[in-house]
Every structure is written in C-alpha cells, then in structure tokens.
Deep mutational scan, measured.
Amino acid sequence: KELVLVLYDYQEKSPREVTVKKGDILTLLNSTNKDAWKVEVDDRQGFIPAAYLKKL
C-alpha cells in the first residue's frame, strides 16, 4: 500500500472529506484525480486536496 505525508492541516468541508493534521502519515487509496486524493484516516475514507499531500 502507498503512504502519503500530510503537509498542512486540513479541515473537512464536506462529508466526503476527512480532517488531517500536518505530519500525519496516511494510507493512499486513490490518486487518479489530480485535485483530490482519497485516503484512509482512522477507519474513515475520504478526500483531501492533493496539494496537501506528498507521496512517500
């Protein structure tokens, strides 16, 4: 599985998104959309803007 590093805090703005903190390391589920990547956070799945993430 692929991991990503969170570069900036992000507060979810819709039910399809998830809230993350800078420095979190998350499982990347889908990065086919260049604008928003799907990740898993504490058994929740949701989207975060790709600009907030860096592949490890």
Rank of each mutant, 00 (worst) to 15 (best):
K1C: 14
K1W: 11
K1H: 13
K1D: 07
K1S: 10
K1L: 12
K1R: 14
K1F: 12
K1T: 12
E2R: 13
E2C: 15
E2Y: 11
E2W: 12
L3V: 07
L3F: 14
L3A: 05
L3R: 11
L3Q: 10
V4S: 01
V4A: 07
V4L: 03
V4G: 03
V4I: 04
L5Y: 09
L5T: 04
L5C: 13
L5K: 05
V6F: 00
V6C: 05
V6E: 00
V6N: 00
V6M: 02
V6K: 00
L7F: 02
L7I: 09
L7D: 02
L7S: 01
L7P: 00
L7W: 03
L7R: 04
Y8I: 09
Y8A: 14
Y8E: 13
Y8F: 13
Y8K: 13
D9C: 05
D9K: 01
D9P: 04
D9L: 03
D9E: 04
D9F: 03
D9Q: 03
Y10P: 02
Y10T: 01
Y10A: 01
Y10Q: 01
Y10I: 02
Q11M: 13
Q11G: 07
Q11V: 14
Q11K: 12
Q11N: 13
E12R: 13
E12S: 15
E12T: 11
E12C: 14
E12F: 12
K13M: 11
K13N: 09
K13C: 09
K13I: 08
S14E: 09
S14K: 07
S14D: 12
S14T: 12
P15L: 08
P15I: 09
P15G: 11
P15A: 12
P15M: 09
P15F: 08
P15N: 10
R16E: 15
R16L: 14
R16V: 12
R16Q: 14
R16Y: 15
R16D: 15
R16M: 14
E17Q: 08
E17C: 08
E17W: 09
E17F: 08
V18A: 04
V18H: 03
V18W: 08
V18P: 02
V18R: 02
V18Y: 04
T19H: 05
T19D: 04
T19E: 03
T19N: 06
V20Q: 00
K21C: 11
K21F: 09
K22E: 06
K22L: 05
K22Y: 04
K22M: 07
K22F: 05
K22V: 06
G23V: 02
G23E: 01
G23M: 03
G23D: 04
D24N: 08
D24R: 09
D24Y: 07
I25N: 00
I25H: 02
I25D: 00
I25A: 00
I25R: 04
I25C: 06
I25W: 03
L26R: 02
L26T: 01
L26K: 01
L26V: 13
L26D: 00
T27C: 11
T27F: 11
T27S: 08
T27Q: 10
T27A: 08
L28K: 01
L28Y: 00
L28N: 01
L28I: 04
L29E: 02
L29I: 14
L29D: 00
N30A: 10
N30K: 06
N30T: 08
N30S: 13
N30Q: 10
S31K: 05
S31W: 09
S31Q: 08
S31P: 04
S31V: 05
T32G: 10
T32K: 11
T32R: 10
T32Q: 13
T32W: 09
T32V: 10
T32P: 03
T32S: 14
N33G: 10
N33Q: 10
K34N: 12
K34M: 12
K34G: 10
K34Y: 10
D35Q: 10
D35S: 10
D35N: 12
D35C: 14
D35M: 12
A36M: 15
A36C: 15
A36P: 03
A36V: 15
A36Y: 15
W37L: 02
W37V: 03
W37E: 01
W37D: 01
W37G: 00
W37T: 01
W37K: 00
K38G: 04
K38Q: 14
K38F: 15
K38H: 13
K38S: 08
K38E: 15
V39F: 02
V39T: 00
V39Q: 01
V39M: 02
V39Y: 01
V39D: 00
E40F: 06
E40W: 08
E40S: 10
E40K: 10
V41F: 10
V41M: 10
V41S: 09
D42F: 10
D42M: 12
D42K: 12
D42Q: 12
D43V: 07
D43T: 10
D43P: 03
R44M: 07
R44V: 08
R44C: 07
R44P: 01
R44F: 09
Q45T: 13
Q45K: 09
Q45H: 09
Q45Y: 08
G46A: 12
G46Y: 15
G46M: 15
G46N: 03
G46R: 05
G46I: 15
G46S: 06
F47M: 08
F47P: 01
F47H: 06
I48C: 07
I48N: 01
I48K: 00
P49H: 04
P49N: 06
P49C: 07
P49Q: 03
P49Y: 05
A50D: 05
A50C: 10
A50F: 03
A51M: 13
A51W: 14
A51K: 15
A51Y: 13
Y52T: 06
Y52M: 10
Y52K: 06
L53K: 01
L53C: 11
L53I: 05
L53Q: 00
K54C: 15
K54N: 05
K54W: 08
K54L: 12
K54E: 14
K54Q: 13
K55N: 07
K55L: 13
K55Q: 08
K55T: 07
K55V: 12
L56S: 02
L56W: 07
L56P: 00
L56K: 02
